[in-house]
């Protein structure tokens, strides 16, 4: 069971969190002309790297905040967690 440091609440067991997928996916701005290709990329294409992965988690059974996690997808080691408005270094 992963041990995840919520940037707001501190270390909590994985049971309190919900996974939110690839954190590098950026939703295109509203009211812009978006090509089919760009939209398809946003909706469906995922690099899913082996190794470091920046992803989102949601502290659903806690503070209900979404935040960023950098985690190794092979060892599951977590390197960093940050609030949404902070950058993963």
């Amino acid at each position: 069971m992963l041990y995840i440091k919520c940037p707001f609440c501190g270390y909590r067991s994985q049971k309190e969190f919900a996974y939110g997928g690839d954190g590098t996916v950026k939703r295109p701005e509203l009211n812009q002309n978006i090509s089919d290709e760009k939209w398809n990329e946003f909706l469906y294409l995922r690099k899913s790297p082996r190794g470091k992965h920046i992803e989102l988690w949601h502290h659903v059974a806690g503070c209900r905040q979404w935040f960023k996690v950098q985690r190794n997808t092979v060892t599951h080691e977590i390197f960093q967690t940050t609030k949404m408005n902070e950058e993963i270094k």
Binding site: L2, Q14, K15, Y19, S48, E55, T73, V74, H76
Partner: peptide, 13 residues
């Protein structure tokens, strides 16, 4: 297990 992974081993929960 519910998060991206390449580990061929999971967790107990």
């Amino acid at each position: 297990d519910g998060y991206n992974s390449y580990a061929q081993k999971g967790n107990l929960p």
